[in-house]
Amino acid sequence: MRDWNLDKEKLRLAVESTLENIAFCIVNEVEHATATPASEMVSSFISCTIGKSYKVAIALSIHEAYLDKIVSDLYPDAESIGEYLQDTLDEFINTVAGIFFRSIEYEIGAFQLSIPYHEHSAISESAVKYYFLLDDTHPLTITIS
């Protein structure tokens, strides 16, 4: 099993590239999670099948108030942004996962990403987590398990 702790830099680059290019957001990596209630975070999940059977799940979680802000900026003419919130998060994780797994493809070999999904069992304690901040207070978390 791969030690995902070794890929921190590549994942950071994937998150930065995605958020900056698509949403013009600057993200900063931080060492620890913020004290944000889970109820204030929204998540999207994607799984990656490596080879024929090894599966990895990545979760992207963002503070819902900041996601509202991102989506409002992306769709300035929309009367209501509700329909775009999950779609935007799904596209973020889709792009992050693509950049990340392409960057390690020479090590892991052929891979296949799923379509993003929203129902997931509880993230295991052994999952590797990376923490970022969007501006000074709003967290973004990536989890690999």
């Binding site: 889709n94 792009t95 996962a97 693509g98 950049i99 797994f101 392409r102 493809e105 070999g109 052929a110 891979f111 296949q112 990403l113």
Partner: peptide
């Protein structure tokens, strides 16, 4: 346009 698409694909 794809997020992934490995070399074989």
């Amino acid at each position: 346009i794809t997020s992934a698409g490995n070399e074989d694909q």
